[in-house]
Design a protein around this nucleic acid. Structure first.
Length: 449
DNA sequence: CCCTCCCGCCACGTT
DNA sequence: AACGTGGCGGGAGGG
């Protein structure tokens, strides 16, 4: 195949594929990964499937979630990517499907992806991140104020209503499927009138980890002054007081996974705390929203000084404020109009992106991640690391993280679609039809001719 | 030795 | 029942 790459993306994709190729024989997993006790930790240099003899010893580094995530992003972060099949992804990246789930879950938690159907995801891209964070923050604050009487800053206490696993004590009875706590994730947009709330039943029982954990982990950064936490601190905070040995350990394992993925997205960065071992993670997702002049959004070049720099930049994560009520109405309408609301919203997204595309086609390095197999240059000794390199990262990050809106109108348009999508999605994701009850009749004239 | 964290079994949810 | 998801923790690699 002499396909000469004509775009940066193709090169990137090729690189990603190449990188993926060297970490597992692609044909092996798909075929029969079902039920064979495959000897663990093997595939050293053994097969290769007749490929070029380029085999370095097995190394877990080459199979880390972070790297996988980078490759995943390189592969799909383009405007023309619409739908992503898990199987394709797994095959292309040369990993088993299980790993794709891991990545996809966290990516979805930060708004980069959205589940469209079984085995199918829709790529939103980094443009979706600000909005997702915004919503996370709002939700977090709401929850907090609803529970904690004094939600000042500081690492107060657990803010989420994370339940525990099986209740070890309490009422030891059999089948009383109470509607435990679960909750969060549920958020009725503008639900003031009439029905105060519609608790979703059958809320994904499983929604106990990874996805939620990721969100809660992020919320931790969004609602707290501290922007540096070690994983076990985080685990402790997220679990509440009663941390049980085993439970904690598992949580921390998950946090490692999440942190790695988030790091590859440059949403957080690992830093060495002074000279103690146990690194911590610092949030990098802080963004400044300037005046509404032209809606340009820029990233804050973290000063590096720990804490209290937040005040200095006074910043809100994303100030996408739009006339909610109106938008909601539109969305409801849209959702009702089509069977597959995802498509229309996707179209909206694509439209906006294509517009924005003109301005960001200027050879921008799409995505904050490292080129593809490039290994992250670890901190070199000093705890201060390099401020410079961080800033550089920030620049590229901001470039892709937030598109440069050309003008107010475009910015507005983008915000609208984004908001629309969000609203619709949150409703749809809950599998509820409450929106029809709430808005069904009052907004019929919006989109229906 | 302890910290990281990948692998994949298998339970649970969906179709 | 088959298949899709993904919780969970053993235990190996890495420092």
């Amino acid at each position: 195949m002499a396909a000469s790459p004509s775009s940066v993306h193709e090169v990137a994709v090729a690189a990603a594929a190449a990188a993926a190729m060297e970490y597992a024989s692609p044909q092996e997993d798909q075929q029969q990964q079902k039920q064979q006790a495959r000897p663990r930790a093997m595939l050293t240099g053994a097969g290769g499937g007749g490929a070029k003899g380029r085999h370095h010893a097995y190394s877990r580094k080459d199979k880390s979630l972070g790297l996988l995530c980078s490759n995943f992003v390189v592969m799909y972060n383009r405007e023309d990517v619409e739908s992503i099949g898990l199987d394709e992804a797994a095959k292309s990246l040369g990993v088993e499907r299980r790993r794709i789930y891991d990545i996809v879950n966290v990516l979805e938690s930060v708004g980069i992806l959205v589940r469209k159907a079984k085995n199918r995801y829709t790529w939103i891209g980094f443009d979706g991140v600000p909005m997702a964070l915004q919503e996370l923050k709002e939700r977090a604050l709401r929850e907090k104020s609803g529970l904690a009487p004094l939600p000042t800053e500081q690492q107060s206490a657990a803010m989420m209503s994370d339940d525990e696993d099986d209740d070890k004590l309490g009422n030891p009875d059999g089948d009383v499927e109470e509607s435990e706590k679960l909750s969060q994730t549920v958020d009725n947009p503008s639900d003031k009138p009439g029905a105060p709330r519609c608790r979703l039943r059958s809320d994904h029982r499983k929604e106990k980890s990874l996805g939620l954990l990721t969100q809660n982990f992020v919320k931790l950064f969004l609602t707290t002054e501290v922007d540096m936490v070690s994983l076990d601190e985080a685990a402790k905070l997220l679990l509440g007081e009663g941390h049980e040995e085993t439970n904690m350990r598992t949580k921390v394992r998950r946090l490692y996974d999440i942190a790695n993925v988030l790091s590859s997205l440059n949403l957080i960065e690992k830093v060495q705390q002074g000279d103690t071992r146990k690194p911590a993670f610092r949030w990098l997702g802080r963004i400044v929203k300037p005046n509404a002049e032209n809606g340009v959004t820029v990233a804050v070049p973290l000063p590096g000084k720990t804490l209290s720099n937040k005040r200095a930049f006074g910043t809100e994560l994303t100030n996408i404020d739009v006339p909610r009520s109106h938008l909601d109405s539109k969305i409801q309408k849209k959702a009702k109009l089509t069977q597959n609301g995802g498509d229309i919203l996707k179209n909206c997204k694509l439209t906006v992106q294509s517009r924005l595309g003109q301005s960001k086609k200027n050879g921008i390095v799409y995505g904050p991640f490292h080129p593809a197999g490039a290994r992250k240059h670890e901190l070199d000794g000093g705890n201060k690391t390099g401020q410079m390199e961080r800033v550089e990262d920030w620049e590229s990050f901001s470039a892709s993280f937030q598109p440069q809106y050309q003008n107010q109108a475009l910015s507005d348009l983008f915000a609208h679609y984004v908001e629309a999508w969000k609203t619709w999605y949150s409703e749809f994701a809950q599998g509820s039809n409450i929106m029809q009850r709430h808005f069904g009749q009052s907004v019929n004239h919006f989109f229906i001719g």
